[in-house]
Amino acid sequence: MKKVILIVLAAGLSLGVGPAFATTQAEDIAALKAYFAERWPNIKDEDMVNGAYSLSEDKRINWESMRDFPPYEDHLAIGEEIWNTPFKNGNTWASCFGDDPSTIRNRFPHWNARDKKVETLEGNIIQCQKANGEEPFKAKKGKIAYFSAWLASQANGQTINVVVPQDDPDAVAAYEAGRQFFYAKRGQLNLSCADCHVYQSGLYARGNLLSPARGHTTHFPVWRGKWARSGGDGFGTLHRRYGGCNSQVRAKSFKAHGEEYSNLEYFHASMSNGLTIEAPDYRE
């Protein structure tokens, strides 16, 4: 009998211990900022929004010349047109997101306490279409990216502040699941997001300068030269990028706007709290 109690106790304990990292969102952000500040004392925190282009003069010059003639202006115009086009049932996007398009981007990602899940901008765009009987956009590129990019452009300069309500254990659990995802090695090549975008950021993998995770989400959707060359245009959402970064370590990628990537975004976007939205932007 004693033995049984002991076993039950041990099981209870091992469940209760939970994640080995009992740090809060605020502590995680502070630690990451301090880590990068120590590595690059000459780079100001606000310059982290420019990713690899703050770290390499060569890359920066190329990037600036691309930005002189942004390749995505026409697609932003399509995004605006989408905002102004009512659904077939007569409703508008405002019925889901409110009237002011400049207030939308920066509300995401957020915790939906009623449905107990993380909501993302693109996830809610699709949800809004379904609720209004519209054919939803494809999840990762095309119109969803144009529309999301235009909404983001309306929010430029606003300070990112992803909120994880500390008094809601489910919200904290979703954030922690995202953090675990970010730091877990995966795939046949056994690499974590953090391996490339924290510990080795600033170094080169082949010709790619690995960008630091702080500042990652400030400029999405991005126009990527590589995506533009692979057929279609260069726009892609954050979850498209997640899929690519999972796949290149030979891990199975997850569904865009599903639970895994939404939780990941919850954590990942938190790591840019305090920086400003600068979207869309060009990336190699």
Partner: peptide
């Protein structure tokens, strides 16, 4: 096995 091994992954910086 990898997923089990990484269950408690988190920052180490």
């Amino acid at each position: 096995r990898q997923a089990m091994n990484q269950k408690n992954a988190g920052p180490r910086h």
